[in-house]
Design a protein around this nucleic acid. Structure first.
Lengths: 189, 189
DNA sequence: TAACAAAACTAACGCTTGTTAGTTAGAATT
DNA sequence: AATTCTAACTAACAAGCGTTAGTTTTGTTA
């Protein structure tokens, strides 16, 4: 009986519109028109425009947080952890490809409370990733580049992946994982 | 006697504001307030909001186009060309760090004519880069990964560099170049 | 000092924005 | 059959938007 509620439908439609034009450039009337109803009707299901943005962004942000926590708690080599993070990132990209645009570009339009929560999650995520890389450098699993540059390089690639995943016609996930892991990691060892 | 005109001043201030909140979230009154004048006064120097965006984006886009053309015309190994592209990207990032946010996030709000021009430049740029990589793979200078994945990986990193360059307190350019070239290229050969 | 141009100002325009109030049609429950 | 609930509707609000017209200030040149 698992059907999607009207609220989830609004969020899905909004995600798609936000992806193309950005949060501020999409009006409630735009969202309503895309659903063939009037703007006022949206308020039977959601409390406001900002709430839509929160639901989109925080849901995915929590996925990242949970995924990272799982990887960190593993008892394995740093290089394997990095591989796991890359694969986790790709999985989330595939499952939430529409939401990632808002997460990357419109997070600053969250309300104060949600903004603080988001920034905290993001900082923690980066800090965890940084620790894994440092651990790998110290254990000599990874070449002694500046950890910050490695972190930045991998993270930029993963964070922009959603753009290419959509443009290049939704490639096969397993092939994608294999290629990305190769390109991003092989140079480090 | 090279002083900056009022128009250039507006564009500089707008770049900074667009970087933080995005084109659509910044009003003409915001820009004016940041310059301690009234919104209407801006129109003594510029024709409209969209013109500001065009000036910001197209100026940098042309820098990239010119830079790429120079690299392509060189008579050198593919791997050296890639290195040159990376260095060129870093130079532009350092010189136009404020403008790059608009170029990356707000290009879709350009007017029809400028939008077409921008998209064309961007496609040409990517196509040139792709050719260099293919050439490198065929000449066995580069490992035989899928060229598209290599292109995507390098380009995402370079395109997001402006964010980190600002956050990490404006690192030294030459060190940055050396590290980036290492991390991005060493894994390929 | 008078004339001029540059660049600021005030006031207002038509339009869009997010949102609220009150109403109505149809389906589900009693 | 009567009631309640759900989800749509119309109409309107105050605030903010980009932009224009007309006016005043300011600084330079004749």
């Amino acid at each position: 009986m698992k059907t999607i509620s009207r609220k989830e439908e609004i969020i899905a439609v909004a995600s798609r519109l936000f992806k193309d034009k950005g949060y501020k450039a999409v009006s409630m009337r735009d969202i309503a028109k895309a659903m063939d109803i009037k703007a006022a009707s949206l308020y039977n299901h959601i409390n406001g425009k900002q709430e839509i943005l929160s639901e989109i962004i925080l849901k995915v942000a929590e996925e990242f947080t949970v995924g990272m926590k799982k990887v960190v708690s593993e008892n394995s080599a740093a290089i394997d952890k990095i591989e796991k993070v890359i694969e986790m990132h790709i999985d989330i990209t595939v499952n939430y490809s529409e939401a990632l645009a808002a997460l990357n570009n419109d997070w600053m339009h969250l309300n104060d409370t949600d903004l603080k929560a988001f920034v905290k999650m993001r900082e923690d995520y980066e800090e965890n990733f940084r620790s894994i890389i440092k651990q790998g450098v110290e254990a000599c699993e990874i070449k002694p580049y500046h950890p910050e540059v490695i972190l930045f390089s991998i993270l930029s690639t993963l964070r922009t992946l959603y753009l290419w995943y959509q443009k290049r016609g939704k490639l096969d996930v397993n092939i994608l994982k294999k290629d990305m892991v190769s390109v991003l990691i092989k140079g480090l060892i």
